[in-house]
């Protein structure tokens, strides 16, 4: 038995589960909040800036080109 397994074995399953539930609650308190507008706005801006500077064709542009081809 490795030291790690011994560490694991010495924790009672009930106590571990209890701690696990509390840690998940702590996580959910943040993770369940709506994403702040400043972060979604930032991503919108980054995306717009990227589209404005004529970078390599995005997949959807290829797609619409292919559709135009097919429509001929």
């Amino acid at each position: 038995m490795s030291r790690q397994e011994q560490d694991q074995a010495s924790l009672s399953p009930g106590a571990s589960a209890h701690l696990g539930v509390q840690l998940r609650r702590l996580f959910n308190a943040t993770a369940d909040e709506p994403i702040p507008a400043r972060l979604t706005d930032l991503l919108d801006q980054l995306e717009q800036a990227e589209r404005a500077s004529a970078s390599p064709p995005a997949p959807e542009r290829l797609e619409s080109a292919a559709m135009a081809e097919a429509g001929r």
Binding site: L11, S12, P13, G14, A15, S16, A17, H18, G20, V21
Partner: peptide, 22 residues
């Protein structure tokens, strides 16, 4: 880690058929 200090919360978790994995 000492069972005597647990309230109902612990018992509920401990009594669950499928303990939550940490």
């Amino acid at each position: 880690d000492s069972a005597s200090e647990f309230g109902g919360d612990y018992l509920a978790v401990n009594g669950a058929s499928a303990p939550l994995e940490l």
